Simulated scan of single mutants.
Amino acid sequence: MTIFLEQLIEDSAFLRADRRLDTELVDKLILQLNRIYPQILTDKEATKFRNLDVPTSVRLGELLTHLQGRGEEACREFYRALHLHVEEVYYSLPTRLRLRDTLDPLTHPQMYHQKYVLNDREPSFFLGCFGIAVGMALLYYYSEAKLTGGSRALGMAALGLKKTAQEVLIWYSEESLMK
């Protein structure tokens, strides 16, 4: 894939017209490519692109054309150098803006249409299930209270209390059993 090459072709017109890329910044980019990646930009080529007799926009245009001819790796390293030395220009490139807009959820919210298993039921189905659950809980609670008089719940509640409170609850539960 030639992602960076295609981006550089698209961004070339913007880079040539951008006034923020002055002579000093273009020289920094050339030196970065020459020093770090001499296989991309040799000393002879760097000297040619740093010639101050040629206007900066022309030198930049020739550099971009040269990098496009060198391939994907050269274009990627140019973007890396641009990001390192001229961050505000890098983030204002047309390809970066388009990429940012497609990834920014605030400008282009993506709708997730995912169907859940329970969503195809009517609300009355859920109310019915809830009513059955509440009815079973009430039935269980009142049937236990009639059989044991509530003594089982009071006896269990007494386990974590101090001695005096424990005795009162146990006495009450014994009283209810005798009746």
Results as ranks from 00 to 15, higher is better:
E88Y: 13
C75I: 04
A137P: 02
R96D: 02
P123K: 15
E73W: 06
R80V: 01
A145T: 08
V89C: 09
G160H: 09
P123Q: 15
H108K: 10
M178N: 14
I9P: 06
D27P: 02
F125T: 14
D43W: 11
Q68S: 05
P105V: 02
A137Y: 11
A145E: 11
I3L: 12
V134N: 15
A157N: 14
L93M: 05
C129Q: 15
L52M: 13
K179D: 04
Y91Q: 14
V89W: 07
L60K: 08
H85D: 03
N51V: 11
E88F: 10
K163I: 08
L93N: 00
T23A: 13
A158Q: 09
V168K: 11
Q7I: 01
T164Y: 08
T47I: 11
R50G: 02
I3Y: 08
D53Q: 11
Q110R: 12
G61W: 01
T2F: 06
K163E: 12
L84K: 10
T2Q: 05
R96V: 00
G155K: 07
E122Y: 14
L8H: 02
G149N: 03
L5V: 00
Q7H: 04
S92A: 06
R35I: 07
K146H: 00
F4P: 01
L99G: 04
R100Y: 07
T2R: 05
P109I: 10
L29Q: 06
R59M: 03
S151C: 08
E45Y: 12
E122W: 13
P123D: 12
K115E: 13
F14N: 03
R16A: 09
T47Y: 13
G155Q: 08
L99C: 01
M136N: 00
F49L: 00
E122D: 10
G150T: 00
A74P: 01
A145G: 08
K48S: 13
R121L: 13
K163T: 11
I40V: 09
E175P: 03
L161N: 05
R152W: 11
I170L: 07
D120L: 10
L177S: 10
L161D: 02
